[in-house]
């Protein structure tokens, strides 16, 4: 990536106005992915100094600023408490500490990386996104947009449900992208299952979720059937990391294993 100019706006309105002024202008999170991207940026706009690094508690939810780094998220006591610590567990799986000290949650969401561990966890947590112009939108809906309009992501809002959760990433090495990642959140009333890096991006396993949420007793047999539904309803594909049959098999085994975990005290 080639950067021609760098701009530190004085307000969000200033940042947005600068962003919209030229199609070649872009917002910077930590810049780690932008560095790898091709092309030229006329003006790179930092969000430093606009208060978006915060992780704040509200009565019913936790608000995470788009500029919060993955390391800040991983080490935050608020995030450790949030829905069984799922987002912390996912953040821990991204590269090493030094990358996590610069990569932001905002960049992880707007980048919409199909391999993202963060998106899979946030999807299972039913995260809501707050954009400067668009306002609030559920992450699940945002991921369905074909080409979202340029905007500034400000906050990520996650409900403080009393939940058990589990996250797994399967990768060849600790520094590799996932062959598959999976996140499950279980509250008293519902189970939410998200899978990503299939290698397509994260999605909810809705049929498996409906089946679990309608089952009176959550037995081993029910977990097996739910895991089977996960493999039937979702598409899996091939890439350099793994083939689709292996991914499908992983999805079955991990779904079963994680469902057991969130329904016991292990998670």
């Amino acid at each position: 990536m080639k950067v021609l100019d760098y701009y530190r706006p004085t307000s969000l309105a200033d940042a947005y106005e600068t962003l919209m002024r030229n199609p070649q202008n872009q917002i910077m999170g930590g810049g780690a992915w932008l560095k790898l991207s091709p092309g030229e940026i006329t003006t790179l706009i930092t969000l430093d100094g606009l208060g978006l690094e915060a992780i704040a508690e509200q009565p019913e939810a936790v608000l995470i600023g788009a500029k919060a780094t993955l390391r800040a998220i991983e080490t935050s006591p608020l995030i450790a408490q949030l829905q069984g610590g799922l987002l912390r567990d996912a953040a821990r799986h991204v590269m090493g500490v030094s990358l996590r000290n610069i990569a932001t949650i905002g960049g992880s969401i707007v980048g919409r990386f199909s391999f993202s561990d963060i998106l899979t966890a946030l999807l299972a947590m039913n995260a809501q996104l707050v954009f400067h112009a668009r306002g609030e939108i559920a992450l699940a809906d945002y991921l369905l947009l074909h080409r979202p309009e340029k905007d500034i992501l400000l906050w990520i809002k996650i409900e403080k449900d009393n939940a058990h959760s589990a996250f797994r990433k399967v990768a060849r090495t600790r520094l590799d992208f996932a062959i598959l990642n999976l996140a499950i959140v279980k509250t008293r009333a519902t189970t939410t299952i998200a899978l990503g890096s299939r290698p397509q991006g994260p999605v909810l396993a809705k049929r498996a979720m409906a089946y679990l949420n309608e089952s009176a007793n959550l037995t081993e047999k029910v977990f097996e059937q739910a895991a089977r539904l996960v493999t039937e309803e979702l598409a899996f594909g091939d890439n350099l990391k793994a083939g689709k049959e292996y991914r499908r098999h992983l999805a079955y085994v991990l779904s079963k294993r994680l469902l057991k975990a969130v329904n016991s005290d292990e998670s």
Binding site: V3, G31, K35, T46, M95, V97, S98, N101
Partner: peptide
């Protein structure tokens, strides 16, 4: 030069960061 190997690590305000991927102006 892609944040993957760690040999460019420096401390920024005391925290390890990959200096290959941080703009100096930032």
């Amino acid at each position: 030069d892609t944040t993957s190997c760690g040999v460019c690590t420096v401390l920024l305000d005391g925290k390890p960061v990959p200096s290959c991927s941080i703009l100096t102006v930032a």
